[in-house]
Simulated assay, not measured.
Amino acid sequence: MSAEVVDANPYSRLMALQRMGIVKNYEEIRTFTVAVVGVGGVGSVTAEMLTRCGIGKLILFDYDKVEMANMNRLFFQPNQSGLSKVEAAKETLSFINPDVTFETHNYNITTVANFDHFMSRLKEGSLTGGPVDLVLSCVDNFEARMAINTACNELGQTWFESGVSENAVSGHIQFIKPGETACFACAPPLVVASNIDEKTLKKEGVCAASLPTTMGIVAGFLVQNTLKYLLRFGTVTRYLGYNALQDFFPSYGMKPNPSCDESFCVKRQKEFAVAVAAAAKVPTVVAEVEDDAVLHENNEWDISVVDETVPEEENLEVAQGIALSYSRPAEVEGGGDISKQAPSVPTSTANEPSLEELMAQMKRL
């Protein structure tokens, strides 16, 4: 074993982040609780990465069982066929790192009874009995994503949404903080916005998102940003996509929709706006200024001196492809805008006819 991993927690390599000055205390990872919803292609890899990083507690949710078709899920084994995915995951992950606390729930979170229990575990499932620190959505259908979105909006719970496309060559992750960023309902997928039943996309005998490479890449992005969020280093991405065909990685921010159908999303937006406004109100500090010597005790005509100097226009630089709609009017000598000056009267020159000559020409017409 290398000297780098000889530590109180030999299962975590995060100590390197502290030695390199990236994080202040990598051992803080042991205090966090993360809920992983969906232990399939992305979720199983995500849970394994967090386990190897020494996360304090993992809460795993999934309703499905392990099948032979799931052997492309990286850590599932043939002898686990028939077990629930969460129990199989706990069995494997506990062997990898016995210091992690595991909590498993084998049910469908979209049913009414299970949804209430799901919310209670997000609210009270941490190591200290309080809310979990982060929720990671690794499900493969719109209904489950909306259930997670509804729960997190109501609880004000920060979470990550992730997914892999049906053709298995693209995926994405999205950071969602209720009220501050767009929730999943603010900008629904095109297929849902177009009123197309997502079940029609599934093909007979085809396992969606079945490439371990794509799943591993998306899970890596998800866990990397989870670590950045929990240990407070770097910049947490708002949205990061991945297109394997062109190796294209789009990244951008998504603002919440004021007209979102989720009532709790709109409520969180209002709360966030109030918090921002309150933070912007800085108490006014009145500085004590020594009075200047009085030059004139009496000022019968209320004469005062003011500075009317016009500040010089800043040198405005715009990005490529953007132009200013108008320019500031030029100033003329003596002050004022050139557009407000009286038009100048042209001066007669020797080549122009005199007034008498013009009148004589008019009479001859």
Rank of each mutant, 00 (worst) to 15 (best):
G156A: 07
F115K: 13
V112H: 09
H105L: 09
L358M: 14
G82T: 07
V218P: 02
G216H: 04
H105W: 07
T349I: 14
A279Q: 11
L245M: 14
P98E: 04
F95K: 08
I322W: 07
E352M: 15
A277E: 15
N25G: 01
S259F: 13
M362H: 11
V169Q: 01
T33N: 04
A330Q: 12
D261I: 10
A47S: 15
L316V: 15
T181P: 12
S304F: 12
F272G: 04
Q80K: 07
N257Y: 03
N243W: 08
E154G: 06
H117L: 12
P10V: 05
R232A: 00
S126A: 10
K24M: 01
A323P: 03
V332D: 07
G205S: 08
A187S: 11
L136R: 06
D99Y: 06
M119H: 05
K340Q: 11
E288L: 11
G129K: 02
F102W: 02
A88W: 01
P353D: 03
G336D: 04
G43K: 00
F76D: 05
R328S: 13
E312M: 12
F118C: 09
V345P: 15
V66W: 01
R145D: 00
T158Q: 05
K203D: 03
A144M: 05
E198V: 13
T104D: 06
M1P: 14
F272C: 14
Q269V: 09
G130Y: 03
G54Y: 00
Q224P: 03
P250W: 02
P343V: 13
A350Y: 08
G129H: 04
A113M: 09
D302L: 12
Y326V: 10
L230K: 00
S339E: 13
T51W: 03
A208C: 13
E317I: 13
S12F: 01
N72F: 10
L122F: 09
A35I: 00
L227R: 02
D261L: 15
N70Y: 05
N257W: 03
E124V: 03
R52K: 12
G125V: 06
D337G: 15
N167T: 12
P256E: 03
P329E: 03
Q157M: 15
I148N: 00
N108W: 02
I303P: 07
Q77L: 13
V6C: 11
V192F: 09
P353R: 02
S348D: 08
Q269S: 13
A3N: 14
V236N: 05
S339G: 06
A144K: 01
A182G: 14
T51R: 00
I338A: 15
M49A: 14
K177Q: 12
I148P: 02
H296N: 10
E4K: 09
S325P: 08
M146V: 10
N298W: 06
S12L: 02
N72C: 10
